[in-house]
Design a binder for these strands. Structure first.
Length: 487
RNA sequence: GGCGACGUGGCCAAGUGGUAAGGCGAGGGUCUGCAAAACCCUUAUGCGCGGGUUCGAUUCCCGCCGUCGCCUCCA
């Protein structure tokens, strides 16, 4: 089955057809870098990371652009978020930007999120934004007032088509005082005149000022992906006004559709309420990583659909951690067995027919995974296939019917799907990952403990196991000997 | 008030007009010197409530209740 994507624009699943055969141009709204990223960001960017990974795995050549907002994103009171951060930390605005942009990439790297191909910064694309604004003015979609430029929503009849709202139905300015220089209360700023000593300002045909928040995404996606590109992503919370404004600007400037598919991620909730900076109920990614391994966070995020909301809780994270552990333990078992085929102790019932049957079963899991992913990136369903496969593989190992061929196939599935696609299995984590000398020392202790056990000196045997456990080395006994792993 | 979602076992979470994936947890068991890991068995006659359509609805329609998101800065 080929890829189906739930398109927010049409509110239905559609077969995916890229503009250019075999290529995908995707744009995802990135963070405003004035503070550390939290788990809400993790949910969105891990989700799109997997989307991109799946597209690549499926053979598409992908260009993934995700902006960094470092100017123009205003707060309720009209103050720029970056300036607020600068004042808070008594730093230059661009120091704030640099600091939190690095922090953001640090977090994403830790989560195994592959870097976008281009991470354009708004402040580095002022000319492109000015140019686009000029085009909009020329085409009669924008107007200049007192050194600021506004987009006229009434000039674009389709305004509201993504979020499903109508201009007349919205109560503009209910909470934020409408600038009376606007012609229509819903008009939004493309360019804002800078006050006398505003720190972030650039020259423009309309005087010194700075760009509005929405225009950057239009200008930068156009520059790198073209007038019409394939997928536009982001969190649903930006559907209005941000995404709606992007569409209006871009389609009015270019006269062609902006993005063909809109994919919006559901919000991350805490106790049923959205995790957000303004509510202060957020957990930073750095904090979360103190308690949970990155793969567990990914596992948690991917065990729900990207476009559904997810509720964050310690119980949920614990469950994800355990689920991940079981899968990882099984992969480790596979690897050990594969490296030491003599330890397999194959049962007499392990016939070639049996092997063929197991390979066939693995193929079924492979198919289930693929069709789940092709069905609008249904990661929970795909993960389910992997988990059932895990039970089967353990069963086969227990019964002694898994031949090397079977082991190899199973490992490939974990590597490709768990690793390359979902990013929850990392090469190395399944292995001991420690230095050779350390491994040899542990083996030595295991030998000493084996002797103690033989002599029924269980106190000593347990002491060795406990001391190692305290150091993060877990020993596990089996009829075939003792194995170890890092906690 | 407007717009849009959602409500599935103790928790998380897929799904379908034909009779409920998976994970976590819990209980029992196998294995073990004991653990750990793994496996086996059990754990929703039921999918918010009330109607309707249908041979048949958890899945479609209507109403109600509840929760959430957006409308205002947030991924």
């Amino acid at each position: 089955m080929s890829l189906q994507i739930y398109n927010y624009l049409s509110r239905q699943k559609e077969p995916f057809k890229p503009v250019v055969e075999g290529r995908v141009h995707i744009y995802v709204c990135g963070p405003t870098v004035y503070d550390h990223a939290h788990l809400g960001h993790a949910k969105t960017y891990v989700s799109f990371d997997v989307v991109v990974r799946w597209l690549r795995y499926s053979g598409y050549k992908v260009r993934y652009v995700q902006n960094i907002t470092d100017v123009g994103h205003l707060l309720d009171d009209g103050e720029d978020r970056i300036l607020k951060g600068a004042r808070r930390e008594r730093l230059e605005p661009m120091e704030i930007v640099e600091r939190y942009m690095r922090s953001y990439f640090e977090d994403m790297d830790a989560l195994g999120v592959q870097r976008p191909d281009i991470s354009p910064r708004a402040s580095a694309h002022i000319p492109e934004q000015i140019e686009m604004i000029q085009t909009l003015i020329e085409k009669g979609h924008a107007y200049v007032v007192n050194g600021s430029v506004y987009f006229s929503v009434e000039s674009f009849p389709e305004y509201g088509k993504l979020s499903g709202r109508r201009i007349e139905e919205m109560e503009a300015g209910k909470r934020v005082a409408v600038r009376d220089e606007k012609r229509h209360p819903m008009d939004f700023a493309l360019w804002i005149k800078a006050p006398e000593n505003h720190i972030l300002q650039w020259p423009s045909p309309w005087g010194r000022g700075y760009p509005g928040w929405h225009i950057e995404c239009s200008a930068m996606s156009t520059k790198y992906l073209g007038h019409t590109f394939d997928i536009h992503g982001g969190g649903v919370d930006n559907i209005f006004p941000h995404n709606e404004c992007e569409i209006a600007q871009s389609e009015c400037a270019h006269g062609v559709p902006f993005a063909n598919y809109w994919m919006l991620t559901g919000s991350l909730l805490v106790n049923g309420v959205k995790m957000s900076k303004s509510l202060g109920n957020f957990v930073t990614i750095k904090d979360a990583l103190q308690h949970y391994r990155p793969e567990a966070l990914r596992f948690f995020i991917l065990s729900g659909k990207y476009n559904s909301p997810a509720d964050y809780s310690d119980e949920a994270l614990q469950a994800a951690s355990k689920g991940w552990e079981r899968m990882n333990n099984t992969l480790r078992r596979l690897q050990k067995a594969y490296q030491h085929p003599e330890s397999l102790q194959l049962s007499p019932i392990s016939t070639p027919e049996m092997t063929a049957h197991l390979i066939e079963t693995l193929d079924q899991y492979r198919l289930r995974f693929v069709s789940a992913m092709n069905d609008d990136f249904n990661t929970p369903l795909a993960l389910g296939a992997l988990q059932e496969m895990t039970t089967d593989v353990n069963r086969w190992l227990d019964k002694g019917i898994a031949t090397s061929e079977v082991l190899e196939q199973a490992m490939n599935i974990y590597r490709e799907f768990g690793g390359t696609v979902l990013g929850i299995i990392r090469e190395g984590t399944a292995e001991s990952g420690s230095a050779e000398r350390e491994a040899a020392l542990i083996e030595l202790l295991i030998e000493l403990r084996a002797e103690a056990r033989k002599a029924k000196d269980f106190a000593r045997a347990d002491a060795i196991r406990d001391r190692l456990a305290a150091l993060g080395v877990i020993l596990e006994d089996s009829p075939r000997g003792t194995t170890w792993r890092l906690a």
